[in-house]
């Protein structure tokens, strides 16, 4: 079942001196419950694509169609938790704004994320990995049907990054949320996704797509990295990006 359909989307940024084309003729669709990744060099318009999907920007041309109502969850490169609010208040932020105050959801999430003890603390008192998990809890609290991840692991050290990948992958399987991840890390894209789209340098457009084999999908992101099929796919994607002067 198709959840999201993106047709011929093109986006320009207008400045006084020039017009920059961020995206050109982007076409793809995502099935319900699928995890897809966009892989490409930095500045290729991946984040612009997420902003368009989140409705923060309107494309200059093309169409973005959702099957039915959609509640969007967006996770940024850094946690951007509000340092003046407690962890509990931060997680409840979306619910507060949507006037759906429900502290059970917040408690459940914190319990599930094994961070219940941090409830009354403030963000600067937590480690980077913990903070990013809290940011995920804040995003999931409003029960999004589409989750957009904008390089959410890129600001973490390698160990936190790997354990958070496992954690996110496991959590999203439980919630069966449709997810779009944007990254420049090939391993991460293969280890986490069902499908990978290769993006060209600016103006961004989809060059190729890869379906991740079932044997990799079944593994956690950490174990997937050691699967034999992983290396093969990594090589293939590496060469594809190389021809695009990645």
């Amino acid at each position: 079942m198709t959840f999201l359909d993106v047709k011929n989307v093109t986006h320009h940024f207008f400045k006084e001196q020039q017009v920059a084309t961020a995206l050109e003729n982007v076409n793809f669709s995502v099935g319900a419950g699928e995890f897809v990744s966009f892989l490409g060099p930095s500045g290729c318009g991946k984040s612009t694509l997420l902003s368009l999907l989140a409705g923060l920007l309107t494309p200059t041309a093309g169409e973005i169609q959702f099957a039915g109502d959609v509640e969007i969850g967006y996770m940024l490169q850094q946690d951007f938790l509000f340092p003046w609010k407690t962890i509990e208040e931060n997680v409840a932020l979306g619910l507060t704004l949507l006037k759906r105050e429900n502290h059970d959801i917040v408690d459940e999430l914190l319990e599930q994320f094994e961070l219940a003890h941090t409830k009354k603390l403030y963000p600067p008192q937590l480690s980077g990995g913990m903070r990013q998990r809290i940011a995920l809890a804040r995003t999931l609290a409003v029960k999004p049907t589409l989750l957009l991840l904008d390089e959410p692991f890129s600001a973490l050290d390698f160990r936190s990054k790997l354990s958070l990948e496992n954690f996110v992958s496991e959590t999203l399987k439980q919630f069966s949320t449709t997810t779009i991840l944007v990254t420049h890390d090939i391993s991460e894209a293969i280890a986490m996704s069902d499908k990978v789209f290769i993006f060209s340098a600016r103006p961004g457009t989809i060059l190729k797509s890869f379906i991740i084999p079932q044997e990799i999908r079944e593994l956690t992101p950490f174990d997937a990295r050691n699967a034999p099929a992983f290396q093969v796919l990594f090589q293939e994607i590496w060469e594809e990006l190389d021809t695009d002067e990645y």
Partner: peptide, 29 residues
Amino acid sequence: VNENYVKVMQLFGASKYETFRHVILPAST
């Protein structure tokens, strides 16, 4: 005020008043 804090608010569909109350004012205190 860091524009990413404001972005977080926009992503939750916050009004201008809500953005002010939850982000701009506490950040500028």
